[in-house]
């Protein structure tokens, strides 16, 4: 899957989970600065991303992502 396609899909997942349709993510967006992001939504986001991308994250993969760009790269790397 292309990086832009992953970004688009992530944007959709974040908009659904955080109940914010106007959310517009870029590769530079800092994950922890996103409005509505907290420990609980983090669980929901991981569950949703694992389901949508059909993969499993390990404990620190998401934590080590500073921004959405890192998250896209991690997902791209884990794609079969």
């Amino acid at each position: 899957m292309e990086s832009t396609e992953i970004l688009k899909k992530i944007n959709h997942i974040f908009a659904t989970v955080l109940e914010n349709r106007e959310i517009l993510l870029s590769r530079e967006t800092i994950i922890t600065n996103i409005k509505g992001w907290d420990s609980f939504s983090n669980i929901r986001l991981i569950m949703s991303m694992e389901k949508n991308f059909e993969l499993k994250f390990n404990t620190f993969e998401i934590q080590s992502c500073k921004n959405i760009g890192d998250l896209c790269d991690t997902i791209q790397r884990k794609q079969p």
């Binding site: 420990s39 983090n42 669980i43 991981i46 994250f57 404990t59």
Partner: peptide, 10 residues
Amino acid sequence: LFNPLSYYFM
């Protein structure tokens, strides 16, 4: 602690 526990129970 919280995140690893979340992953486990998830």
